[in-house]
């Protein structure tokens, strides 16, 4: 019964939260938001998209703490590089990274993390060879392959398996 009414509980919950944030808290809006959430979940169920399974909440929390810090550090580094002008030029370039992560949701989240970080940009993913082409602004400061694999890919692998 629960399965058929709410096939995607997290999606329904976030839709309800969005509705409340947009329209303010009141009994009527709460009801309307619930209707919207259930209807959208039904549509989602019709699409039959594979449901991601979350395996490790601890890894989610860890990732949610690590990513903002990394984005902040990267913000500082990139601002410094832009403001430094010709004197502080760094070597930029492409990096190819072999990925062990196969789950599509995990890959999507990895793409969002990498692209939101100012120093790195996701360029291409080859699903046949499961390699990822990255462009990094500062090629020499860090070992990017190791960094991406240990900091992001490993926790994502724990979450989505």
């Amino acid at each position: 019964m629960m399965r058929s009414v709410l096939p995607y509980p997290l999606l329904a919950l976030s839709l309800l939260a969005m509705w409340i944030l947009l329209n303010g808290v009141s009994a009527g809006q709460l009801l309307l938001g619930c209707v919207v959430a259930v209807a959208a979940s039904a549509v989602m169920a019709q699409l039959q998209s594979p449901k991601p399974r979350l395996r490790s909440w601890r890894a989610i929390v860890r990732l949610a703490l690590v990513v903002p810090v990394d984005i902040f550090r990267s913000n500082v580094a990139v601002s410094r590089q832009i403001l430094a002008g010709t004197g502080g030029r760094k070597v930029s370039g492409f990096v190819t990274i072999p990925l062990a992560l196969r789950d599509r949701t995990g890959l999507a989240i990895l793409a969002c993390i990498i692209t939101s970080t100012p120093g790195t940009a996701w360029v291409e993913y080859d699903s046949k060879r499961s390699t990822l082409l990255l462009h990094v602004l500062d090629l020499e400061s860090e070992d990017w392959v190791k960094l991406i694999k240990t900091r992001y890919e490993q926790p994502l692998g724990e979450i989505f398996g």
Binding site: I71, V78, S79, I82, L83, S92, T115, P118, L137
Partner: peptide
């Protein structure tokens, strides 16, 4: 600063990094 990066970085692939400063 992010938009300034659009102006100062040399190639397109470098410039892709710049707007994320503003959006994060």
């Amino acid at each position: 600063i992010g938009v300034l990066g659009l102006l100062r970085l040399r190639s397109f692939y470098e410039r892709v990094h710049a707007p994320t400063l503003g959006t994060t």
